[in-house]
Amino acid sequence: MKYAIASSACALLLAVGASAQATAPQWGQCGGLGWTGPTVCPAGWGCVSTNEYYAQCLQGATPAPPTTAPASPTTPIGGGGGTPTTSSSAASGTTTLLSGNSFIRAVEDPNFHQYLQSEVLGTAGDAVLGSPATAAQFQIVNGQLVQEVPGGTLLYATVEGQANSTVTKLKMSWSTTPASGANAGTFMWSGDTVEWSIPTIARPQLNAWLVCPDAAGNKDVYINLGNYDYMTPAGCADETIHAYTGATATP
């Protein structure tokens, strides 16, 4: 019996070791705060950190040890189920974060610490990144990304459908009704990172986003259907967006 237990323990250790040595795919994620997947890139590819939350396998790059230590938010990130806590104090631009909510912000230039919100504050319409002073508050509930606005009203993130296979970015906006149907998709937390997936689209990176200013300079938010930091559409910037649970939205 002792030999059988020892044998099982050895097999488990070997399995864990094999998992740790797994190779990330070309252009795939290989590190970042909270990352628990493979950190080794294919031959001829190097793991390059684009920010503290994300590292990617890039062709011909010099390998560098990626950051994989878990993130430590000051309070729990908004939950994946239940009902949002609504309050008139949960308006876009509120200075104090309500319990159970999160601010959501970018952490990469040129949009460093720009915060997710509505283009016209607290209303349905385009999703944009903007000033910390006008930051909205969010929860992810049953796969829906929910923005809380004055008077207890909720706005739901919706993503436009992919018109055809050549479309590489999908615009995100806010609606007064939950996303539904074939194009609804699912929002989720991965550590403190916001991800989006849908069964009809095979995305190489679920946390890849784009910020593309419109003609008026508003920083519109898009789902990036391609790889992060690769073949970026003209005029756009690659971003990952993250929960921030400090007491106030800081620059």
Rank of each mutant, 00 (worst) to 15 (best):
S197L: 04
D220K: 15
I198P: 03
A215E: 02
G93N: 05
A22N: 15
T39F: 03
L58D: 03
I198C: 11
Y230G: 02
T245L: 00
H242K: 12
Y222F: 15
C41Y: 11
A157N: 07
L58T: 14
T134V: 12
A24Y: 10
S92M: 03
P66R: 11
S165K: 13
E239Y: 01
Y222V: 13
A61K: 05
G143N: 05
G46V: 00
T68H: 07
L155G: 09
P251A: 13
L33H: 12
G130M: 00
S7D: 11
V40L: 08
D126P: 09
T193K: 10
V211Y: 10
D220V: 14
A20K: 13
P213D: 06
A106K: 03
L116D: 04
L129G: 08
T62R: 12
V120D: 09
A55H: 05
T123Y: 07
L129H: 08
T50Y: 15
I77Y: 01
Q114V: 03
G185V: 07
A133Q: 07
A249H: 13
N142V: 04
A11W: 04
L129I: 06
D109M: 10
A4F: 15
A69M: 09
T74S: 12
A24D: 08
P73D: 06
Y228P: 02
M172W: 02
A11I: 09
A9C: 07
Q59K: 15
A91V: 11
R203L: 13
A243P: 00
G161Q: 13
P38T: 01
T75C: 00
G17P: 02
I223P: 00
V120A: 14
E239I: 12
P73Q: 02
C41I: 03
N101F: 00
L58M: 05
T166N: 13
A15G: 06
G125Q: 05
P63R: 07
T168E: 05
S87W: 04
M1H: 12
P213A: 10
A24P: 05
T158R: 13
G181I: 06
A133R: 14
